[in-house]
């Protein structure tokens, strides 16, 4: 039983990480209807910057909390700048272009960011400085570290914060208006360029948080880490219903649980015929199954027939 609880906890942690990244995807999608394929790379940049800053200050004698905060602040600033620039250069000129054009520029941006990171941080893997306590606590026979608790909490907090931002503030109202119908929003006095820039900046700040969390939890950062993470998070966002904040969270957690339970039990369930190497297949089958019955994700808004 404790093994089962452990697998659930594993899934929750993994899922929270997916959810953190998926929030960024879904925000941009919600406003612009655009898959920001470069989001995974922004997470990578966040991880790299945070790690470099923390490494730099590691021996300064600052408390761990401040170290993390400085790392996060630097990462957030850089990511916000990167996100802002990406939108300005690669997406804004293409708002009236065919739907797939920004997808190609996103892939281009992704390649550029990856190789820039390789030039800056080199080809080697970077280890996260061992500043975090490694003690773990035991709940019902399952172990979890304090950092992992923090990850789950932060992901939840981020989601709640975003929802408040979108549903309760003036800015959020403008965002919703832009998402609903940009031209009418503009007529109502919403500066949609500003709103879209702002969306990217917030999404990128979230990416910085996710980057720090990922690199701290797995104590590893590498210029290629964004691709896989972005892909998983994108899957999670679609599973939940892309464009929907709660959906991203739900999709992320669900994907994490599916992967974790899939890897843990698929072998025993199939009598050893399938093993943990089919974990991703398992996840994709669930995704396809969900989308066949709910074509716009678990809690996504119904896409109008006129696509």
């Amino acid at each position: 039983m404790d093994i089962f609880i452990q697998q659930i906890i594993n899934g929750l942690i993994l899922g929270s990480i997916y959810a953190l990244v998926a929030l960024g995807y879904t925000m941009v999608y919600g406003i612009m209807g655009l898959i920001n394929f470069a989001h995974g790379e922004v997470v990578m940049i966040g991880a790299m910057v945070a790690l470099s800053v923390i490494k730099l200050l590691e021996n300064s004698g600052l408390p761990v909390f401040l170290l993390l905060l400085f790392g996060l602040a630097a990462a957030a600033l850089v990511c916000m700048a990167v996100g802002f620039t990406i939108e300005r250069i690669a997406y804004r000129p293409l708002r009236r272009a065919p739907r797939l054009a920004p997808l190609i520029t996103a892939i281009g941006v992704s390649i550029v960011l990856q190789n820039l990171a390789m030039l800056i941080w080199g080809r080697n893997y970077h280890a996260f400085p061992p500043i975090l306590p490694t003690t773990s606590m035991t709940i019902f026979g399952a172990t979890i570290t304090s950092l992992q608790v923090a990850i789950v909490l932060i992901a939840a907090l981020m989601m709640i914060g975003l929802m408040i931002l979108i549903n309760r503030t003036r800015l959020g109202r403008a965002m919703r208006a832009t998402s609903e119908n940009p031209s009418i929003a503009q007529l109502m006095g919403v500066n949609i360029n500003q709103i879209i820039s702002f969306t990217f900046v917030i999404g990128s700040a979230l990416a910085a948080v996710a980057g720090l969390m990922v690199s701290a939890n797995y104590s590893i950062a590498h210029y290629y880490m964004g691709f896989m993470l972005g892909l998983k998070a994108f899957t999670a966002a679609v599973l939940g219903g892309i464009g929907n904040i709660a959906g991203a969270m739900l999709g992320g957690i669900l994907l994490g649980l599916i992967e974790s339970l899939g890897a843990g039990y698929i072998g025993d369930l199939t009598g050893g015929f399938l093993g943990s190497h089919y974990q991703d297949i398992f996840a994709f089958f669930v995704l396809i199954g969900v989308l066949v019955f709910r074509p716009s994700g678990l809690i996504g808004e119904k896409v109008s027939e006129r696509a």
Binding site: I89, A90, P93, L94, R96, A97, P98, A101, P102, I104, T105, I107, G108, V109, S110, I111, V112, Q114, N115, L116, L119
Partner: peptide, 16 residues
Amino acid sequence: MLLFGLALIVVMLYRP
């Protein structure tokens, strides 16, 4: 690879 990525972006910007 950097140039390749840039080429993708530039082509799409000028010929969407």
